[in-house]
Structures are given as C-alpha cells and as structure tokens.
C-alpha cells in the first residue's frame, strides 16, 4: 500500500499532506494529554511492530505493495490517536531508511494507513463491541474492524492512484504520473487485500489481541464511549460510500473524484500556484457529461442519498443483531461481572 514518489502529482501529495497536518496535530495533543510519560515508549514499540509487519509485503501491479499494517491492533491497544502516530513513524522510517514509500507521498501514505485504517478499524471495533458486549462480540468487532480498516485503506490508495491519469496529463494526453486509471488500480489494489492481506491483518489482530488480553489486560486502551459516538455517523457514512464507489468504477467514479479533488484543493490552505496548471491539462470535467444521474438529481446529491440509505440500513442491521444478542444474553444471565 506504500505509494512511491513520482507516482502521484506534487499537488496530490500536497493535498494529502495538508489533510494529514490537522490529524497529526490533534493526535499529538490527544496523546500528550491522555498518556502518562512512562507509557510513551509503547508508541515506539507499536511503530516498530507495524514496521516489521509492513516489511512482510508482496508487490502488487500498479506499483504498490500488499501487506498487513497492524493499525487496528495498535488502535485497540493504545487508542486511535496513538496508533496514528505509531504508524506514521513506521512509514517515515520506511521512507527514509528503506525506500519503501515516497517522501513526498508520505502524507498520502499516512492518510491511508495511519489515518483511515486505525480510526476506521477502531471505530468499527468499538461500535460492534459496544453493541454486542460479549467476548464473541468483541472478537467479531476486531475481525471486522481490522478487515474493513485495511481494505478501506487499500481502496483509498487505489483511488489516489487511479485519479492521477485523469487529472494530470501533458497536452498530448499522456499521463504525467501513475498511468493506470481507476478501472485498473481499484481491482489491482483491492482484490489482493480483500483476499489475502485483509485476512492476514484480521487474523493477526485477533490473535495478538486475545493473547495480550489474557496475559496483560492492563495494556488495553479504554476508550470513552461518549466521544466515539459522534464519529459513528461519519464512519458509517464512509463505509457506505466506498462499496458504492467500488461498483461505480471507471468514468463515473473518476468524475466524482475530480470534483472532490477540486473541492479539497480550494478548501485546503495550500498555495494554489501549481494546481491549476496540472488541472488545466487533465481536468476535462465539462466535456464528459455524467452518464449516471438519479431522476434529474445531480451526481453528488444522488450519491449522498444512497450513502445515507446505506448508513441507515447498516445501523438497523446492527441494532437488530444487538437486540437479538441481548435477549439470549439476559436469558443465560451470564453477564461478565466486570
């Protein structure tokens, strides 16, 4: 999942880095506040662990690699903010010392593996665990959280790759950076992760977690429920957005991507100096009419609508499962005494 330098346009790198800056600032603040000094070394060990996991990688077509990250595990052990710092550091070491992942692409790599992965993985885990408060529920949460987290990170990587040839071409129409479009990058990235890396990540996370819980339960992070609740909506929205994107490969997704990128750039506080040039060449939004609309609705509106629907369905599903679980649970009255 490591994007090397020169596969992405500098402007993409700048946007991704700009997106990561607030994440890092908040993470450092949260960790500084929530951790005792003697626990800081845990973050270092987490980074070392994640580093080693990522070294066990397989090259994938499209110029990237497939591997486990351990981000969800770290998030469960020391909180998502700490995990974000740990994975970022692991990525930095790889970029600096091992040429794995680029320096300019560092922000993009962190966005996928140090932001999307641990936060999404953790919140899915927490969501499921809070709703199904049993051992099995927790394990289920870990498996799903780490699996989805890794795959979403892979998908995000694929999207970043895939929008390059659409956005950045020279006047002759030849891509300046990664030349493969979404229709190639998405399957190339997601299939190996869905089939292999995601499974490895999920099993690894569950196994290590169970071990640590047995041997040293004090080491596990106790997240507060209140705070995470607000994020659920966002997370679930993300979950729903992405499968839809997966279905809508090719041009439709590309157009949406272009639009979003434009928003992100004008929204971020990056100097705009270089973006227009790159956009001029590759940005042909007006010429390609969207071929997917929902009874006259603009693309984006239709998109959001289906996402909300998906979120609702997801929530309903979980509430049903939780309620069902609780019933059988109360019957057996085997609530853990803690």
């Amino acid at each position: 999942m490591h994007i090397p330098d020169n596969y992405l346009s500098p402007s993409t790198c700048a946007v991704m880095s700009a997106a990561m800056v607030p994440v890092w600032v908040v993470s450092v603040k949260k960790v500084k506040k929530g951790i005792t000094k003697t626990n800081i070394p845990i973050l270092g060990i987490g980074a070392a662990f994640s580093f080693l996991l990522m070294m066990l990688n397989i090259p994938l077509p499209g110029g990237t690699t497939g591997h486990a990250v351990g981000g969800t595990l770290l998030a469960i052990l020391s909180g998502p903010y700490a995990a974000c710092i740990s994975v970022s550091i692991a990525l930095l070491i790889q970029a600096l010392l091992f040429g794995d992942g680029g320096i300019l692409a560092f922000g993009a790599n962190c966005f996928n593996m140090a932001f999307i992965l641990p936060f999404l993985g953790y919140f899915i885990y927490k969501f499921i665990k809070d709703r199904i408060p049993t051992e099995k529920g927790e394990l289920f949460g870990i498996l799903i959280g780490s699996y989805v987290g890794l795959n979403m990170a892979a998908l995000s990587t694929a999207i970043i790759f895939g929008i390059q040839p659409i956005l950045f071409k020279n006047p002759e129409g030849i891509p300046l950076y990664s030349p493969y479009p979404l229709s190639v990058s998405i399957p190339a990235m997601t299939i190996p992760h869905l089939l292999v890396a995601g499974v490895v990540e999920a099993l690894f996370t569950a196994a290590i977690f169970s071990f640590i819980k047995k041997v040293s339960p004090g080491m596990i992070y106790q997240g507060r429920e209140q705070k995470t609740k607000a994020v659920y909506a966002l997370i679930v929205l993300l979950i729903c957005l992405t499968p839809l994107g997966l279905l809508a490969t090719g041009t439709a997704w590309g157009e949406w991507g272009v639009d979003e990128i434009k928003d992100v750039i004008s929204g971020g506080n990056q100097p705009l100096g270089f973006t227009p040039q790159g956009m001029e060449n590759g940005f042909t939004f007006n010429s390609i009419l969207p071929d997917y609309t929902l009874s006259g609705l603009p693309d984006i509106a239709a998109y959001i609508l289906s996402a909300v629907a998906g979120t609702s369905i997801f929530l309903i599903l979980f509430k049903v499962i939780a309620a069902f679980k609780k019933e059988t649970f109360d019957k057996n009255s085997k609530l853990p005494s803690e």
Partner: peptide, 16 residues
C-alpha cells in the same frame, strides 16, 4: 513526542 517515538522505534526495530 514524534521524535521520541521515532527514536524508540528505530532502536527496537533491529532488536525485535
């Protein structure tokens, strides 16, 4: 905190 985590990680990667 970033430098510290980086420092510890580097020290432990080889050993681990």
């Amino acid at each position: 905190i970033f430098i510290l985590v980086l420092d510890i990680a580097i020290k432990y990667i080889v050993m681990l």
